[in-house]
Design a protein around this nucleic acid. Structure first.
Lengths: 209, 209, 209, 209
DNA sequence: AATGAATGAGAATTCATTCAT
DNA sequence: AATGAATGAATTCTCATTCAT
């Protein structure tokens, strides 16, 4: 009997359900926040969409705010390996930057399409900044790879914190706008963002008048 | 009866009270939104801080949302003249950009003082940072004048929305980080942001190795 | 115009409504606790019976527990002047005791009849002891009048705290039982309680075998 | 396979666990009811304190009410032998009464120790003191034997319910006060209570002027 | 205009109990 | 027998807004 292999017992149905429920709530929250906006969304809205009982929500999260943070944290957690992969496979700073931005845009475009979706167009969501531990780690990772590039002589020695913050901000904002356009053009957005970071306004793709 | 003398109330007195109340509500709202974020803030929180009665709020604003808007307008109203001054003074796009960014950094550095000061010091402050309406309008002002410059041929014709979003994002993030550093160095931050926008990474101020 | 007489303005309709509402909630609570018992009773039950809106409850009390305390406190507050009157008009200790016990039994019998009423018979409510400030004052008043009687030489010098506690306890328990009997016989109950306090078991009224 | 040895579990082991769990739940319930009162206490509070899983509770008791009853029975079971002993030892009603009251005071003084000890020390404790089921049953025991004595001609035939209520009330209140005094003087309290019940105010122990 | 209590829809939350594992 | 997550009815409670004074 190969049972022996499971010195740690295989995750039972219970455990699987727990993970699935946690994810279901996260997914539902992503959709609901996307459709109604964070403020209008209620815990009821979220839980209704999962098909779970209302009380079940509170087995996983204590409030709407907590799901929101978990959502942000979750995104950052899933993105971090992708970012690292880009860093490891990139030849130089420019390649890393392009790879990372492109990967990020793909990531958010795939992100269920529900985040920021089905909302009356023009109704801008107010910007929300949650600083989750995982998001901070992404920031640190970006900054550290910039520092590494600088130390390799691959990039000029500049204020790494400012630069990381700027590059992330540009990516986030352009990415956000990209998602609101139809069709979603990941490559154009990446061209813009990367050119901007690497060369500023003069380097940007020109448009017809 | 000496009442007669005041059948018409002392001129301006009532008017002044009205203006003062309106401003008191605005100030209270700025504080409360800053401390709790738009969502968590309640009308009661705002009105409590003014010392007025709850019903009085509705003599001035119809809803929480309306104060929010008014607050935005207030911010814009205060920032627009500063921006215009920069525009008139500046010779070209680069100079204007520098002036605008500098003015913005000065603006938030001032706001920051009056905000952070009043924030309950010991209290944990883990919640989402929702973009305040004031900031938002300030950004809009910058963006609009930015687009105008482009239309006047002062700046290359590039994707205006992406560019505006990027420049604003850089300004916001660098500005945010600037506020967290001691001492707050507005000029260094502006140097960074403006160089970045105008020339990307290669144009950034170098640091000692 | 006799308006002048109201240097302090006459209580307006608002003020009257406030007092009336507070009392209405108290009355409703007394009924509901009486019918359902403290535990089964909900805030909804109470508020429903007042005809007020649910939110109104919370303008007056923060919880079921708080109304309950207010109820106890209210009873004690209203009883205290009655007690004092008995003390002032009584000739000696025995007369005071009889007067006070009788007054107390009348008081609780009148107490709307709803407290401890319409409940399935035999379903004993668990004893509940709330120590409200006003109840403590009643205790002190009883004890102090005992001490006064002792000092007058009207009663033997004994442990006044134990005695007051005992006399009050006997009155409360006999009173409680009295309310559960039909017909309610205030005099028989008072005879019993007073005899017991003044002479213990041997002094009690005998019953047919 | 060495499993074989335990196909039948070690005899008594399971049984002991069952008894231990049942007792653990009872002990936890005693604590929790004591700290929070019956109403505020939840099954979760009780079960949490045992370290058992919530579902396990229902293997032993069907509801919160049932533990409450069981707790009452537990108290009675522990007190009845003490009471019986007094009865067998005592020559007459007075001696029995004294023995019973003394035993009761000893009982609550002991319970008191184990209760007050575990109570979270700094915590405000404003809530209602609901009669605990144990105390209630203890009172019932006393009352029943009391009535029995009356029926055997050991005591005068008076209103049994009133008398039982009175004697119990006196014992409870004097006992309560006794617990609040330092040092706790069981004998003085018993002297007072018994004298009071047997002879009223005139029979009470005198105090120095 | 100012006041502040009342309103009541609806959101948040609890918790006894069940039941698959 | 033990576990502990799911359930969902029921309850608590909030808060924007109204309106009589």
């Amino acid at each position: 009997m190969s049972q022996v292999a499971y010195l740690t017992p295989p995750p039972g149905k219970r455990e699987r359900t727990k993970v699935a429920n946690r994810q279901a709530i996260l997914d539902a929250a992503r959709e609901v926040f996307g459709e109604l906006g964070y403020e209008a969304a209620t815990v009821r809205d979220i839980i209704r969409r999962t098909g779970l009982a209302s009380g079940t929500f509170y087995n996983y999260y204590r409030s709407k705010e907590e799901v929101f943070e978990a959502l942000a944290d979750d995104g950052a957690r899933r993105f971090r390996p992708i970012l690292r992969e880009q860093f490891e496979k990139a030849g130089d700073f420019a390649a890393y930057l392009r790879g990372a931005v492109l990967a990020y845009f793909e990531f958010i475009a795939n992100e269920h399409e529900s985040w920021q979706a089905r909302r009356p167009p023009g109704e801008r969501q107010p910007h929300m900044q949650v600083e989750t531990p995982e998001m901070h780690r992404v920031f640190e990772e970006v900054r550290d790879s910039f520092i590494a590039a600088m130390q390799r002589g691959d990039a000029p020695r500049v204020d790494a914190d400012y630069l990381a913050a700027s590059a992330i901000a540009v990516s986030r904002e352009v990415g956000q706008q990209m998602l609101e356009r139809r069709p979603i053009d990941i490559n154009a957005a990446a061209d813009f963002a990367v050119s901007f970071i690497l060369g500023g306004v003069p380097a940007l793709p020109r448009q017809e008048p």
